[in-house]
Design a protein around this nucleic acid. Sequence first.
DNA 1: ATATCGATTATCT
DNA 2: GATAATCGATATG
Length: 213
Amino acid sequence: MTSALHDCPRLLALGPDFFARTPRGVARELLGKVLVRRDETDLLAGRIVETEAYLGTNDLAAHAAAGNTARNAVLFGPPGHAYIYFIYGNHYCLNVSCEREGQAGSVLIRALEPISGLEEMARARGLSLVSRSDSVRLTSGPGRLAEAFGITRARDNGRDLTDESSGLWMADDGFRPGRIRVTTRIGITKAAAHRLRFVVAGNPFVSGPKARR
DNA sequence: ATATCGATTATCT
DNA sequence: GATAATCGATATG
């Protein structure tokens, strides 16, 4: 008697302390961790291979730069909560809050390597997995991974990611990434010079041009 | 492989 | 009224 679940270590949620530090540190340390979504029908899991740090009110590229508003209030709340924003009239993106209550900061999850629930992710993305390489399109990019995991603002904004009972959390399964590459952030115009993007070097699920992987 | 462009809407100026 | 932490399609080398 065997199942995929039996073969997996228990995916314990990273606790609030993990997120209670600078976005730069959280972004770096999240590489290799696992994003998990569990609901009544599905267990989805993907390894984090690309992140970006967004700082506080003086980071012009960060949504926190607008001050505490209805849209971004989660950024100013306690660490380890989901900040979901809607962008270009089309896509949702997942961030996790960092630091502490009153100090804004977050990490954007930019790409995952899918581990479990690939068929369900493909269905959510409107794709079919005919060849092995098709899996790259499931979760390679912030909008793509949100769609694959069914993440929306209405459903998930403010969700406590440090509580497994929330159904969406991050876990350490013992895996340690290899070489890490640091680059400038992608897709922004303001404060573009800072090197706050972290990727697992050479991982095929990292988004963006080849030179940035 | 890289570049350009259109889609589509919540949010802020 | 302009903009945006993107994606997928199309064009071109």
